[in-house]
Design a protein around this nucleic acid. Structure first.
Length: 279
DNA sequence: CCTTAGACCTGGAGGC
DNA sequence: TGCCTCCAGGTCTAAG
C-alpha cells in the first residue's frame, strides 16, 4: 500500500502522537511479524522503551527507541493505529497482530489484513544503514545525492525495463507502483524502455520528476486509492492529481489520446504511448 | 552476477 | 445467494 509519500505521512503523524511515550507492555500475536528475532524477544526488548526519534528511509519506518532501532515495513496493507481502547468488533480485532500499551493509557496497534508487513529490531546505531534490512537499499528518492548521475550509474548494466528498475529498492528507495507510472509519464519515457539505454538527460528528468511528484504528494497527504489512511483515519488527496495511474478510462492530459493499461514485470502499468518515448 | 515466475495472505469486485 | 476468477500503494526466494 504505501510508498514514500504515504510512509512520510504515517511517520509524521506517529511522531505527533507518540513522541516521548513509553511502551509498558508489548504483545505480538502473529509470530512472523518479527522478522529478525523471535517475536517473544521483540516483545520483551520493547517493553520499557520510549519513542525518541521518528525517521523514514524509502518505505521503511524507523522508530529510534532508548536502546534499539525499531524498523517497520507496512508492505501492502499494514497500518498503525493509536487507540484509546482495543476494538471489540472481531472483524477489526482479528487483523490486529500486535499491541503496544503506552504510559498514557492509549495503545499502538498494528493492523494488517494481508499479514505482509514486517518488523525488525536492532541494537541502536548512529548509522541506520548498518542494519541488515537496510544494507542493500539505495538512496532515498528525496536524498539530494539521488540525482541523474546516481541513477545513470545504477542503470548502466541493467537490461530490465526502466519501470522495474524504479521499483527496485536497491536502485532508489521509496518509489512504488503508482509513483513509478507518474514519474515516467512526467519524464516522457515509456516504462518498457531498457534501463541501460537511458542517457544522463533521461536520468536527470526522471529524478527531477520523482522529487516533484513525491514532494507534492507528501503535501497532499499521499494517495488513497483503496485503503491507505493514517492518523485518525485521514485519507490522502493525491489520487486527484494522478495523470495516468488507474486512469485508463480517461484521455491523456497532454495529448488527449487514450491511456493504455499493460503489464510490466507482472505489475499493472499505465502509460500514454504517444507522449512516452520507448528507448 | 542478473532476471523472472511464484510465493506469501486476505478481501472486495465483477461475471455467471 | 453462491462460486469462481482476478485484482491489489510490496518484497522474498528459487531456479534458469
Amino acid at each position: 500500500m504505501p510508498e514514500a509519500p504515504e510512509v512520510q505521512n504515517v511517520i509524521s503523524s506517529l511522531e505527533k502522537e507518540l513522541q516521548g511515550r513509553k511502551i509498558l507492555h508489548a504483545s505480538i500475536t502473529h509470530p512472523k511479524l518479527s522478522d529478525n528475532i523471535p517475536y517473544e524477544e521483540m516483545q520483551s526488548k520493547l517493553e520499557g522503551q520510549t519513542f525518541r526519534r521518528f525517521l523514514r528511509h524509502g518505505k521503511y519506518l524507523i522508530f529510534e527507541m532508548d536502546d534499539y532501532d525499531w524498523i517497520c515495513h507496512l508492505r501492502m496493507e499494514g497500518k498503525f493505529l493509536v487507540l484509546d481502547t482495543f476494538p471489540e468488533d472481531p472483524k477489526i480485532s482479528k487483523h490486529i497482530h500486535a499491541r503496544f500499551d503506552l504510559d498514557d493509557g492509549r495503545m499502538l496497534c498494528y493492523y494488517d489484513t494481508r499479514k505482509f508487513g514486517r518488523m525488525h529490531l536492532y541494537e541502536k546505531s548512529e548509522d541506520k544503514h548498518n542494519h541488515k534490512c537496510l544494507k542493500d537499499i539505495g538512496l532515498d528518492v528525496l536524498d539530494p545525492k539521488a540525482d541523474g548521475e546516481y541513477l545513470l550509474e545504477k542503470l548502466k548494466k541493467r537490461k530490465i525495463p526502466i519501470k522495474s528498475a524504479l521499483l527496485d529498492q536497491s536502485v532508489i528507495a521509496g518509489i512504488g507502483n503508482i509513483y513509478a507510472d507518474e514519474i515516467l509519464f512526467q519524464a516522457g519515457l515509456d516504462p518498457r524502455s531498457v534501463s541501460s539505454h537511458l542517457d544522463l538527460e533521461d536520468c536527470t528528468r526522471i529524478m527531477n520528476a520523482a522529487r516533484d511528484i513525491i514532494q507534492a504528494s507528501i503535501q497532499e497527504g499521499g494517495t488513497t486509492i483503496r485503503s491507505f489512511s493514517y492518523g485518525h483515519g485521514q485519507s490522502g488527496n493525491f489520487q486527484n492529481e494522478l495523470q495516468v495511474h488507474a486512469r485508463d478510462d480517461s484521455p491523456c492530459p497532454k495529448c488527449s489520446g487514450p491511456i493504455e493499461k499493460i503489464k510490466v514485470g507482472q505489475r499493472s502499468t499505465y502509460l500514454c504511448p504517444n507522449c512516452q518515448v520507448l528507448k
